[in-house]
Simulated assay, not measured.
Amino acid sequence: MNLKISILVADDHPLLLKGLRNELLNLNFNVLEGANNGAQALEIIAKKKPTIAILDISMPLLTGFEVIKKSKESLSTTKFIILTSYKEKGFILKAKQLNISGYLLKDEPFSEIKKCIKKVLKGEFYASSVFDDVFKNEVSPQIEKIKFLSPSERTIVRLIANENSTKQIAEILSISSRTVDKHRANIISKLDLQSDSNALSVWVSKNKDLLDLV
């Protein structure tokens, strides 16, 4: 049964790549020749259409995220699992935006990868506990705050994210600078930020990608 399921592993660390392929072969999966850079992984996915691709994030030529994005743009049916050392909010948010099937840390036992593959084949999402912890404690609270912003306020936040000044925002939206300032004050209040001049800009620089999730 497992032989019908083809798996690609892509990682630029030879020992990890070889070890993971061997473990999957022992489980009787149809394991394709591994890729040691993102461009090679993308080419294999396009040609051989594996059931699952297990990708590192940091690889030469193309990152794991870039491989996933380009594959999805080509309407690939491959399901993607990220296997990485990164547990920071930015990486987890990017993974969420790409709607991947699994997110695992490299320091976890192989049994976790096996469990993840089983879930992914059932059409379920599976991730390391740290993924859920970061999303629950760092990402979701900010998303809930953004939901309280009006459409106009979200537009202004996006314009701030694109480094537009108050004057430029006023010109783009055909409103007065005073109206923009009122919106900024309301946004600061709803986001529960300090009312100093840089607080909103700092928040936007850290959380602008969250706007795409709301």
Rank of each mutant, 00 (worst) to 15 (best):
T84E: 06
T179F: 08
A161W: 05
D132N: 10
K106E: 13
K106S: 02
K94N: 11
L213Y: 01
D181Q: 13
S6N: 13
S174L: 11
K106I: 09
Q168E: 15
V120G: 01
F29L: 13
K4G: 08
A170C: 06
Q194E: 15
T51D: 14
L8E: 04
K206R: 13
D192A: 12
I172Y: 02
A46G: 03
K190E: 11
A53R: 01
D11A: 01
K147D: 04
F91M: 06
I169D: 04
S177R: 09
L213I: 13
A53V: 08
F65Y: 12
K190F: 10
S189V: 00
N36E: 15
A10M: 08
M1V: 01
L55F: 03
N2P: 06
S195K: 09
A35R: 03
S189C: 00
D12I: 03
V31R: 07
E144G: 00
A199V: 08
K136L: 12
I68A: 10
A10L: 10
L32P: 10
K114I: 04
S152V: 05
E43C: 09
D181T: 01
A170K: 09
S189T: 11
F135N: 01
A161P: 01
S150K: 15
N22I: 11
I117R: 05
L24K: 10
K48G: 05
L173G: 04
G34V: 03
L24A: 03
F80C: 09
S128V: 04
N36L: 10
K145A: 04
D11S: 02
L32K: 05
I92V: 07
Y126R: 11
D181M: 06
F125K: 02
K136V: 00
F148M: 12
P151G: 11
R154F: 05
N207Q: 00
I187A: 13
E171K: 13
S189N: 09
D192T: 10
L105V: 03
E88V: 04
H183S: 09
Y103D: 07
V31P: 01
I156W: 00
T77A: 09
V204D: 13
S197L: 12
V204L: 12
G64S: 05
K115M: 07
I57T: 06
I100F: 04
R178L: 15
I187D: 11
I82E: 05
K145R: 06
A127L: 04
L159W: 04
L200V: 06
S174T: 07
S111A: 13
I172V: 03
S177L: 02
K47Y: 10
L211G: 01
E43A: 14
D133C: 07
A46V: 05
D56N: 07
I54H: 00
N26W: 01
N36Y: 09
F29Y: 15
N30M: 14
S6A: 07
L61I: 14
N207P: 00
I172A: 02
E171I: 02
I160H: 10
V134K: 07
L42S: 01
K94Q: 15
A39M: 12
S195A: 15
E163M: 11
N28D: 03
L105F: 08
L200H: 02
L25F: 09
